[in-house]
């Protein structure tokens, strides 16, 4: 505990510390343990009165059912399409703007960055009605574009990238400019290679943000065939006929991508998160 007993951390304190941490950790991972354990149980076993986290008879039938009967891969595919194009478009649009706002002063630049970052506070839930009507006007209901385009503008991405671009010394660009390179060349040939670490962080945040989307698919996806994984899962779980073990298998499959991404890039993730929170 933060130098509270730095000199002589007694055994009692150590035990107490581990005890607290283990209790908190169990609370944090219990839902995952439950989910994984239920996904390997038979529909009969989950209805037993005496609960056990370890299934008595391991079965893969829930996963097979989710795959071949419920076609979970279809919704997985929909989510991947939305995430892929969403992340790419978002990063392109936001990084171009962030670069211009970090490097150039032009009429309205301060106004723009204030507005862009300010949109971070807009609650999605409050924008449901107007957003739905706009998407309907453009004929974007029930197609991928309707789920992808609204997530392109993201204030957090503009903010993070412009903060980073400001740190890059301007001299690096000056010489290229004297040599007659266009702004776009400078951006792609000089700025982008220098910004690999920050783009790593931005991609991860962006992916988690896009994968997390629920409200926009809820407004856009009317037919089941176009639903993203989270939306389809929420519907599945509210059908009284669906079996808990199968829903558990489906949720396990759906959780894997975010956890893998997080474990692979946790350092960037946590750094970006705390810096964003403290500055923003």
């Amino acid at each position: 505990m933060l130098s509270l007993e730095s000199k002589k951390e007694t055994i009692t304190i150590k035990v107490l510390k581990y005890f607290c941490l283990i209790i908190i950790s169990i609370f944090m991972i219990l839902p995952f343990l439950w989910m994984i354990s239920a996904s390997f149980k038979s529909p009969g076993e989950i209805n037993l009165l005496h609960y056990s986290l370890i299934p008595k008879n391991f079965t893969f039938s829930n996963y097979l059912y989710a795959f071949f009967k419920l076609n979970i891969w279809k919704y997985f595919f929909n989510s991947v399409v939305v995430a892929f194009f969403g992340v790419i478009l978002q990063t392109i649009v936001c990084s171009l703007a962030a670069y211009a706002l970090a490097r150039f002063e032009f009429p309205g630049s301060v106004f723009l960055i204030t507005i862009f970052i300010g949109t971070m506070m807009l609650p999605d839930a409050a924008l449901m009605v107007p957003l739905f009507r706009i998407l309907r006007t453009f004929g974007l209901i029930n197609n991928y574009a309707g789920m992808i385009l609204p997530i392109v503008p993201w204030g957090f991405s503009v903010f993070m990238l412009s903060e980073f671009f400001k740190e890059i010394p301007a001299e690096l660009e000056e010489s290229a400019r004297i040599d007659g390179a266009s702004a776009l060349t400078i951006f792609t040939k000089i700025i982008l290679p220098l910004s690999k670490p920050v783009f790593g962080a931005v991609f991860i945040f962006s992916f988690i943000m896009v994968w997390d989307q629920f409200i926009i698919p809820l407004l856009v996806a009317n037919s089941q065939s176009i639903m993203t994984l989270p939306l389809w899962l929420a519907n599945l779980s509210s059908e009284t006929s669906s079996n808990r073990t199968i829903v558990a298998a489906a949720t396990t499959l759906a959780t894997i991508p975010s956890i893998i991404i997080f474990l692979l890039f946790q350092r960037n993730f946590i750094q970006g998160l705390t810096s964003g929170a403290v500055k923003g």
């Binding site: 997390d212 989270p230 959780t255 975010s258």
Partner: peptide, 14 residues
Amino acid sequence: VTTVSIIAVVWKMM
């Protein structure tokens, strides 16, 4: 980092 809606489904089943 987990998806809100998915985690809500899990809690609902718990």
